[in-house]
Amino acid sequence: MSQLPILPISSIGSLPKPPDLFQAEMAPLEQQDRAWMRQAQETAVADWLATQESLGIDVLVDGEQYRRSITTYFLEGWGCADIDPDAVWVLDNMYGQRAVIKRPATESRTLLLDWYQFAAARAQSELKVTVTGPYTLRDWVFDLHYPDRAAAVLAMAEYVREEVQALVAAGVRYLQIDEPAFVTRYDQPAELDVAIEGMRRICAGLPEHVTIFTHMCYGAFHEVYPKMLELPAQVFCLELAHVAPEMLDILRQHPFPADRGMGYGVVDAQDPRVESVEEIEARIRLALEYFAPEQLWINPDCGLQVVPRESAVAKLENLVAATHRVRQSLA
């Protein structure tokens, strides 16, 4: 982190996919033209890496161009789940394919290694690898195999740990474990505890030079703060472009610890409207009222996959411009 500028800029994870790739990946895996898919995915990853570098992003992501969703990619890839043929409503007119866990993993838990190496060979800047956390891998799917939720979460934690071990051995220094589901069952302490235990198992023994991020979105963060600090992450990337007054209240009551980082979300990841530089700058300055500059990372609220590509690029462009303005004033 010492080589990065103050207020380092990163993306969160997903970025818009080319329409033909998006369409093609909806087909069942066995019906997909694997060679065509791989080529299209590689092209899309390389394109987004170049785009982020040209925009001035400090820590790049691969845009998750090869993942059908943050859950099915891993569960199908590990061989422990099948996709239910009837997609489930999520929002608007959008229906999501749902994995059904049916067995322990039968395939290698090194899905990300190959993609990391592909990206690392093409990126000049630092890379951040994102992996879905074990709690979300259970909460956002169906399970017909494990006796209870905790057993499923801890089994997923072992699989994620194997992915992470392979990535760290290959040189990954920035690793983000996404747990958007962490914010949801805050009325059930046992659920939060098993999510924390899952991430602890993944991170146990990781070398100090690896920076662990976690990302949560769409949440009433004030409901899980300061409990969320029990997660063994150094940087918490939260959706804060429209920060709730309750979150600011609780940050005043329980200041964020000085030894942890905050990835402050400053652009809306759902709304295609492109925020102005001034708007984003104001959000960064609000963040500086609650966090020291050294603690802050600047990022979008969430993966930008659902907004059009031109909107995503423009949002990132303005995010970079706004951050540069604030950096200058801090200097």
């Binding site: 999520v90 929002l91 999501g96 769409y218």
Partner: peptide, 27 residues
């Protein structure tokens, strides 16, 4: 969704972006 459609009864009101409902993964 139901909230979107219910707003038809009060057309002067704006409906805004989807929010996650409870602990479901629906918005």
């Amino acid at each position: 969704d139901e909230w979107f459609q219910m707003a038809r009864a009060a057309p002067d009101l704006e409906v805004a972006a989807p929010l996650r409902y409870l602990d479901t993964n629906t918005y």
